[in-house]
Computed example of a mutant assay.
Amino acid sequence: MSHVLPASYAWGNFSVLAVGIWAIVQRDSLDAIIVFLTGLQLTVLTDIIHISVFYHPASHLGAVNRFSIGMAIFSLLLKPVSCYLVYRMYQERGGEYTFNIGVIRAGRDRGTYEPIDQQEAPAQWPDSSKTAQQPY
């Protein structure tokens, strides 16, 4: 029996599946979910490369090989939906995506930040604008 897709296709997808199980088990870990999201995005790219390089529609494939190629294409079509759902899980766990290119910023506004760990030192000289004026 001839294999249509190489072993690297299976290894890549099964390793992302293992990372996905890790991300589900560790509910408080942002690292696990971001590694899973990155792995899903990488497998979208590698799946496109694998299917485009190794699938030849002109060749005569058996029913099992046609079914496996169909499932690989179906998996590829569902991966953007999976990426969106995993990203929503990332946001629910408290992850914050900040994007910063020069002047354009997305994320929380930190302009009104006030440090609370430092006490203000009292002024050495009293403020002359707040003192009562001396009568002449």
Score class of each variant (00 low, 15 high):
Q133F: 07
Y136K: 05
G62F: 01
A32I: 01
S52K: 12
M1F: 04
P57E: 04
R27L: 10
R110E: 13
H3L: 14
P126Y: 08
V19Y: 00
S52W: 10
R108V: 11
F99Q: 08
E114I: 04
A18S: 07
I21K: 00
I34A: 08
K130M: 10
Y55Q: 03
E96H: 13
A32S: 11
E120M: 13
D117I: 11
T43C: 15
T112I: 03
D47F: 03
A123S: 15
F54D: 06
S68K: 05
I34F: 15
E114H: 06
R93V: 01
V86P: 01
V64H: 09
D47P: 00
V81D: 00
E114L: 08
Q26D: 12
Q133S: 10
V19C: 03
M71N: 11
S29C: 04
V44C: 09
D47A: 15
E120T: 09
V4Q: 01
S59K: 12
D109K: 08
I34S: 14
A18V: 09
D28H: 14
L77A: 10
G94W: 01
P6T: 01
V86K: 01
Y113D: 02
I69N: 02
P126I: 06
M89I: 04
G111H: 11
Y90V: 01
S59E: 12
A10Q: 06
L78A: 09
L17D: 03
R88A: 11
T46S: 14
H56F: 05
A121G: 02
E92L: 15
D28I: 02
